[in-house]
Amino acid sequence: MTPVNERLILASKSAARRAMLEDAGVAFSVQVADVDEDALKNRHDPADAAGLAVELARAKALAVSRHDDDAWVLGADQTLAFDGGLVSKARSQVEARDRLAAMRGRVHHLHSGAALAHNGQIVWSGVDTAAMRVREFSDAFLDAYLAAEGDALLHCVGSYRLEGMGSQLFEAVDGDYFTVLGLPLWPVLVELRRAGVLLS
């Protein structure tokens, strides 16, 4: 068996993305990218949430790749489109409650973008989308959910973790589970094999 000598850096602080790659048997290190996400969002068309996810992923991959030419750098980001606009992470439990209440009985879309950079250049990028159908949950459930999750839900763009109690918020999901968690894993693995980071 030919050894794999290529290094991979994940340019993301997301615990969910780290766990996905670790569970898939991918060896990598983590270096959080220094990117002004707000500036990128302000320049981007808010109607193009999928495009923004890719743009943020590309910016993160490039920011780290410019400082480590030899490594392959994986950048990733996720955006949430709802009611014709972009949704950002809630800043408080009150804001999270209001948002989840507004999503009740409706559909929103999660866009997970990823990009692979090498030698300071983007060599691949892509995005995948999942449609999330929120059920008509009661106010009592919403209060119990917020109490159980606490401030941890403020780190998630939709104020939920599908791998946790947040799964109870939904009646159906149309899309890939990994995409919901924040990474289009299957296309990423294809590109890592192509790059020689993983055995083909």
Rank of each mutant, 00 (worst) to 15 (best):
G166S: 09
G85A: 07
S88P: 00
D68H: 14
D45P: 13
R104N: 04
L110V: 14
H44K: 11
I9W: 02
A148N: 10
S138D: 15
S65F: 05
H108E: 03
L8V: 05
D143L: 12
H118A: 10
K41P: 00
S125W: 04
L162G: 03
L183R: 03
R194T: 10
A114M: 10
L154K: 09
L183Q: 00
F28K: 07
L189Q: 12
A57V: 02
R133F: 08
F141W: 14
G164Q: 11
R91F: 01
W72P: 04
L86C: 13
V180Y: 03
A39G: 06
V73N: 04
E37G: 09
F141Y: 15
A49Y: 09
H155G: 08
W124Y: 01
S200K: 08
R133A: 12
F28A: 06
L189K: 15
G126Y: 06
R17A: 03
A19P: 00
K89D: 06
G126N: 09
I9V: 14
A59V: 13
G120P: 10
F82G: 04
A96Q: 02
D176T: 04
P46Q: 00
G182V: 06
A115L: 13
K13W: 06
G182M: 08
D23W: 00
G120R: 05
A130Q: 09
G120A: 13
S112N: 04
A16G: 06
L8Y: 04
L181Y: 08
D176C: 15
L153Q: 06
L74R: 01
V180W: 03
Q31F: 00
H67G: 15
G126M: 04
D23Y: 00
D174R: 13
